[in-house]
Design a protein around this nucleic acid. Structure first.
Lengths: 183, 183
DNA sequence: CCAGAATACTTTAGGCTTATTCTATTTAGA
DNA sequence: TCTAAATAGAATAAGCCTAAAGTATTCTGG
């Protein structure tokens, strides 16, 4: 069902070693927050790398393409490019490129809207089938990667990250407001 | 002290919106692990984006360049390219490019070793000064971004992520061993 | 000693991401 | 109405990252 992108048809290669990663190098006098941040980063990168690798090896696709299709699967009515941009937390120009590819592969389509500046992007039938197949495996990878925690620990981690998220949102948003010093 | 890369001298632009991000779109029937993974990803991206932005706006540099210098600062004796690659969890070709730039900017130097295939990469004096300046601010950004948690919560989160990390390491490493089916 | 394997690094091609700039269209205000 | 601002998307240039292939050097076992 997937029309594999030839450029992605490669065999798995040696991933960067892991004996002593970025975080391991943290010194004892590093601030708690710094250590925590480095560990968050390491965890995310480990998982993300694993998923990217699986997507490439098993489905000849990439995480951004999977992500975009995943958004569309959640919104069968279609999404505009800027909605995809917001939800995927990437810039608009990026969406243009990824969508172009998925359209070329027949997995996604652009439909004109009454607002002639915009499109509604939807999964095609082939795209829906391909995504369903990938999503099933994707979930098993994630479940496996996070199966080192108990149900209770999952919940605790989710809660702590909720706090991190909301605080980071506030901090970042507050600074994105221009300090209207003059004028 | 920093020799700014002209290509990076840009004003801050609109970051992708955040009203409804990737994770918010998770459906109630999504598996716990999936929700947790999406939240981890969102948190990391929020923080990382913030730091990248600050590095660009305030120091006209990038996170990978900062990261590389940070590794060197922890190892004044110098590191070989492949050591940098391992520690930063990126491929070797990548290190070549980033090092080339930092050398060109006078922040880092390659020294020949007795093993003539390899180099020892070190911070120059200018690089050390530039890094110290950046690291001070960097830490305050991170502290600020993670200040939504109490000291206790920091410790809990660090512990939970330690579990995630070690399990992900095992999972990923186990699969990278080729199943010697024949031959 | 010496041929083959391993290691350290570089190069290349392709994809992702960003910030910026541009075009087309829509909206809103005088 | 008609012009200015806002919005949607595309195009562009530069950096990051990867996988794969290439080059030089070192190591190792016969």
């Amino acid at each position: 069902m997937l029309r594999p992108n030839p450029a992605l048809r490669r065999t798995a290669a040696r991933t960067p070693g892991r004996a002593s990663d970025r975080e391991t190098a943290a010194r004892p006098d590093d601030h708690r927050a710094l250590r925590l941040w480095l560990r968050m980063l390491t965890c995310t990168q480990l998982i993300e790398r694993h998923i990217r690798n699986e997507l490439r090896v098993r489905f000849s696709t990439t995480l951004p393409r999977f992500d975009l299709m995943s958004q569309l699967e959640r919104h069968p009515e279609g999404l505009k490019m800027n909605e995809l941009s917001r939800r995927m937390m990437v810039t608009g120009g990026n969406i243009t490129g990824i969508t172009d590819q998925l359209v070329k592969e027949g997995l996604v389509e652009r439909r004109p809207l009454s607002d002639r500046r915009a499109f509604s992007v939807k999964l095609t039938r082939a795209g829906g089938k391909a995504f369903a197949e990938m999503a099933r495996e994707h979930e098993t990878w994630v479940v496996g990667l996070l199966s080192g925690l108990t149900r209770r620990e999952h919940a605790d981690l989710l809660g702590l990250l909720a706090k991190v998220k909301s605080h980071a949102l506030i901090t970042t948003d507050a600074e994105s407001v221009e300090p209207r010093t003059s004028e």
